[in-house]
Structure formats: C-alpha cells, structure tokens
Design a protein around this nucleic acid. Structure first.
Lengths: 224, 224
DNA sequence: AACTATAGGTGTACGCTGTACACTTGTCAA
DNA sequence: TTGACAAGTGTACAGCGTACACCTATAGTT
C-alpha cells in the first residue's frame, strides 16, 4: 500500500500558536499559562513552539496585539464623542474577554494593531478640533480610566449586584473588628440591593469624562 | 574567655522581612524579585523566610499593605475636593515609589492599611453629601483613573518632556512605514517641545474628574 | 531519479523558581 | 539540668523558560 501518513497533524504556524495561546490564557489565566502547557494543548513538544515565536516575551507581544485587533476603531462617521464612547466600550469588552491582558496593553512592544488603534484615536480627537496638548490630555485620561477600571473590575469581582455584594462581604470578613470600618460595612450591606452593574458603572464614569472633555473643545471646530 | 558570639546577626522578624522585600522590589523590580534573592539580601538561607511569612503570596500581601500605609488618608479638616485631591496625589506618589505594586493594589488580600484607606475615602465622600450610589461611582472613577494612570506612566516611560519625546520616537521606530500613522508622527515630533510633565498630566485629568463630581453633589450638603 | 538544502519537530539538559520536610542550634522557663 | 520552643539550615523536588544538538520530511535543483 502507498506509504500512508496516518496521523498527519496539521503543521504549526505562528498564527496558530498565537491563537491557541490566547485561547489557553483566556481559560487558564496568565499565571497558569506556560510554554509547556501551550505545547501540550497543541499536541507538540515544548521546543517546537520556538520555531514560530522567538520566546515567551515575543509570544505575549503577539497575544496582546490580537487583543488590540479586536477593538473597534473610532468611526469617522460619528461625532467624536460617540466614536470615543464606542471605542471605549469596545476596549472594555475586549479586556473582559481577555482579562490576562489587562496589565499588559501598554507595556509590551507595540504591534500593528496597537499602532493602528493609537493612531486612529489620536486622529479622531485632532479632527474633532482638540488642540494637540488637549488631545494628549484627552487621550491620557480616557485610557487611564479604561485600563484602570478593567483592573479594578478584575480584582474586586464586582460583576453583578449579587457577586458584588458577596465580594464586599467576603472582603469585610477578612478583618475581624468591623465596627472600625463603618463605611465598609455600609458598602457590604447596601451594595447587593443597589442593583450594581459593572457595565453601568463603567459607562457612568466614561460619560463623566467625555462630558468634561466636551467642554474643552475648540469652539471653532466641527459641531458635536 | 567568655563564650563570645562574634558575628551575631540581628534576628529576622516579619517586619524586617517585609521592609527588606519592599526595598528589594523597589530597586530590582517585580520580575527579578525572588524569595532566594530576598534571603540573600538578608544574609540568610531561603527557607528562613518561611518562619516569618507563610509563602510568597502572603509576603506580597504584606508588601502591598505597606504601600497603602504610605498613602495619606483624606483629611477631615479639608473640603471633600481638596481632601480627595491630596489623597489621589499621595497615592500617585506612593505608586511611583513602588511601581512594582501598580497592578496589585486591589488584587491581593486586603490588609489593615488597605481597609483603613478605603473606609476613610468612602467616609469622606459620604460626609460630603454624596448619596450612597453616587459615592460608589465617585470612588470607582477616581481609583480607576489613579491606578490606570500609574499603569500607563510605568509602561510608556513618558516622564519628563525629554524622555517622553524619546519614548515616543523609540515607539515610532519600531514600525517601519511611519507614513501610515500620521498622528503617531505628530506625537513623536511635538511632544518633546510641548513641556510634557507626568505630574501635570495626572493633575489635569484628576481635576477634570473632581470637577465633574462636584456638579453631582447633593445641593443640601455642607459647602464645598 | 538522486542529491541536497531547509523548515519543522524532538530529546536532553541547565539554571532558575517556590517551598515541603527533616534537621540543628540558640534561648529561656521551670 | 532539663525540656520546650522559636529560629535558622540543608536537602530535595517539581515546574519553569529555553539553549543546543539532533532527526526527518518536504522542496528544488541538477
């Protein structure tokens, strides 16, 4: 019979490695994410990965750029405020899908999707009439808020009203003498009933910031 | 001669371990921070540390609480805005001194300084007349901004006008075809001459947020 | 058709990490 | 003097990233 190659694993590629890496990090978390684990997931020996990525650092760079590629660019068809709002919400959702990326979005060597994103955001602000210095400020405050919120969201576990209450109570129980912290007690007791919702919370702060920025725009610029 | 103990190292203690750990993390960074390195710094064998801390996780918990302990609590003598402003600036400075702590402030088991801090901040907002839900929003937006800004500050390396320009240009050079990213080019060229200063940048965003919050206060509350 | 270069996958090995466990030593109380 | 207990030591193990040498299957050239 004719020299049959039975198992014939589909060969690796840089794209396939990156994709599997993102998937593994999504479900295992960053701490449990290892080169060896990734290799196993791909049915391959650890060193095989190194034919497609230089090392773990470069792998993480590529993974982060995948996250950037999932973020909606600000649309030129919308007024700046709506465009920035959509882009912020899209970033927030991407970070929820890939919470392992939260501390890494700006700390790694930027890839093409990152550059495209940053260029488009800055472009949106400049075209909206923000002078250069103000545009820098506007960019800075938005991204600080977006990334900082994602960090807190991940860490506090305030997700739904229920889990927020649970988390607050769990947090409270770690310290014995609660009477010293009346305002933490208030949070633990009132938050569950308050209908807390992380998405609402995020939008609330975002809108406060965008409103503040809107007051600073060059008045001679395109409307809205 | 009388049974002389010549070298007689001062004995370890939990406090001394934590203190040395913070110092080592400050100068070596979190990646290079290891139990073995810390032990060496203290002139002791690695396992000796485990008589004073349960494990590395608990050690990091304690280190983070030291950072919290360095943050100024909001003063009751000031109006809420000034108190929150001082507290935010103090947090920012603590995070600059201890940049290894930036992603960890809310992700670890809270210690006493953490609880005191959170309780005091929430108390300040409530006493200023913010209704519970608004106080939660106000807390959330401030901390998201503070931690997010620190994250960006650490990652971008925009520190002084000069280093900001350098960083922007370095960043630009990582991609070959700059003509595709005109707004990144603008940043790389204009930022160095713009007198960029990270402390100013931080205060700018902070004031925008505090102004926005001030508009939402319960009008029947104590003035300013 | 035979030869060879090359890309992709393998196996072994090294130094690093956190830390479990058993041991010794130093100090104080009874 | 004895005995308990706290503090420090030494050895060992599993897991990590990855350097390096090796094999093997495919592609191109002659």
């Amino acid at each position: 019979m004719a020299h049959q190659k039975i198992p014939t694993r589909k060969p690796l590629s840089r794209a396939r490695v990156l994709q599997a890496a993102v998937a593994l990090a999504n479900e295992a978390g960053l701490d449990a994410f290892s080169m060896r684990g990734l290799a196993q997931e791909l049915g391959v020996v650890p060193m095989a990965l190194y034919k497609h990525v230089a090392n773990k650092e470069e792998l993480l760079d590529g993974m982060v750029d995948i996250v950037f590629s999932e973020i909606e660019l600000p649309s030129g068809d919308l007024d700046w405020r709506s465009a920035m709002r959509r882009r912020a919400l899209s970033t927030h959702e991407a970070l929820k899908r890939h919470s392992w990326a939260i501390g890494m979005m700006e700390s790694r060597r930027p890839g093409p999707a990152n550059l495209r994103n940053h260029n488009a955001v800055m472009g949106c602000l400049r075209k909206a009439g923000f002078p250069f210095e103000i545009a820098i400020h506007a960019y800075s405050i938005q991204d600080a808020y977006i990334y900082g919120f994602a960090l807190q969201e991940r860490d506090t576990g305030f997700e739904t009203p229920d889990s927020a209450g649970e988390a607050a109570q769990r947090r409270a129980q770690t310290i014995g003498s609660l009477e010293n912290y009346p305002y933490l007690v208030e949070i633990a007791t009132k938050l569950p009933a308050s209908g807390y919702d992380n998405a609402v919370e995020f939008a609330w702060g975002l809108d406060l910031i965008l409103d503040g920025l809107d007051r600073l725009r060059d008045p001679g610029a395109p409307p809205a």
